[in-house]
Amino acid sequence: MILVTGGCFQGKKNYVREKFGLTAEELTDGGTCPMEALYSAKALYHFHEYVRRLMEAGEAFSLEGLKEKNPDILLVTNELGYGVVPTDRFDREYREKTGRVCCQIAKEAKEVHRVVCGIGTVIKGG
């Protein structure tokens, strides 16, 4: 498992395509894909939107399930949580949940990359 994080519009997709030699077709959009695509995708971006969709469906993320079915997946997520506490309750819970899920993934991942201005830094493993 590999996690790539960073703010929005930082060039994360281009970074993973170059860094890991992926084609556009190999990148699955977590905001629109079927939910089960998580377990077959080579790489999934907009993972924060995937977490939001799980929450909206009242489902929980299962790290165990992902480890079992798709342990080598590359996940790309926006780095949320760097703002003032949102006034809307769902927004608060969403950024918190995304954080907790990404902490779980980062602990499991063999590499964590962080992309700023298109430049990736390996902050774990690598």
Partner: peptide, 8 residues
Amino acid sequence: SGGSGSGK
């Protein structure tokens, strides 16, 4: 330091 839910 860190964001919300960062594990800080």
